[in-house]
Nucleic acid binder design. Sequence first.
DNA 1: GCATTACTGAAACACTCGTGTCAGTGGAGG
DNA 2: CCTCCACTGACACGAGTGTTTCAGTAATGC
Lengths: 177, 177
Amino acid sequence: MPSARETELLEAAYRYVLTHGLADVSLRPLAAAIGSSTRVLLYLFGSKEGLVRALLARARADELALLGDIGTGPGVVARLWDWLSAPAHRPLLTLWLEAYARSLVEPDGPWAGFARATVADWLEVLKAGQPEEVRETAAGLVSRTRELAVLRGALLDLLATGDGERVTAALRASLSP
Amino acid sequence: MPSARETELLEAAYRYVLTHGLADVSLRPLAAAIGSSTRVLLYLFGSKEGLVRALLARARADELALLGDIGTGPGVVARLWDWLSAPAHRPLLTLWLEAYARSLVEPDGPWAGFARATVADWLEVLKAGQPEEVRETAAGLVSRTRELAVLRGALLDLLATGDGERVTAALRASLSP
DNA sequence: GCATTACTGAAACACTCGTGTCAGTGGAGG
DNA sequence: CCTCCACTGACACGAGTGTTTCAGTAATGC
């Protein structure tokens, strides 16, 4: 459905927000940076809100691509952490956290439901990593909630301090207590 | 050092940002809501950045008051979670997350170092909760990093879903595995 | 009484914001 | 050829931004 030019500009805008943040992006600087104009952005995406929505969807596509490739069975948590702690993914994860926080403060607009949605996404993947006999039990739900919490908390720490060694050790300790 | 009027207005502004968010606050609506004017705000705090800095410090004072009261010895993590999961503290914690994310995206300005600072603050408190013989060991550091990660991750989940039951169960599971 | 200090009001300045208007391009299909 | 259509440029509009200038008031300290 989106035209070639549209996806091209979306990709450029996505690269831009990865380094500049998404919360207080504005059309004119963005357009200038990606060699376009506000007129074209508005024409293609309808409004700024439409653009932000598209960018959020684009970021989510990256995330879902990961979750699709991560596989199932034991060791999912460790593999997820490998991906989360990779320095190359830091801009994406900062963007992710930004959107997460924003969707809590401002429950309307393009951010709506972002936080809730990712919790569900990740819980689903962790569920697929559990032994089959606990997946549908209450204990299973609690267990993957715990795994998710550790991953998210470790990610917060890593993004703030950059101390991959300490945080990774903590995560490993949490896997085999 | 701050005058009576200054702390009075700061308190009012603090109540305001707790419900409206701090990221995209602007002077005129804020001033109108707290019965003041931009002129006065600028006079008392020097600039908008000064005001934001003061508000951030005010929020941090709330946090530090908690950390001072939480005590030491075993059970710190559980007591911290009781505080974090109390519905009354949700606005403060949303504000906290907002500032955390912002300080990662925009490392300059009044937000600078906020994320890093709170990691250090909390690790310090968790350290005081550990048995004395591990406090200075590498294993001790890793252990409280893990505790912090669980608390933070659980908080993220709770803020997004509001499902205190599931998240609290996960945290408890993480304490006595 | 008087000068100093703390605070406040009204209006303006020089922006930036998202968006709308009107006018064009260039190429593809009939 | 000529029409349609995706795309683009220049510009203006109204609203909102942080900040400044100039003016005042009320209370305090000498």
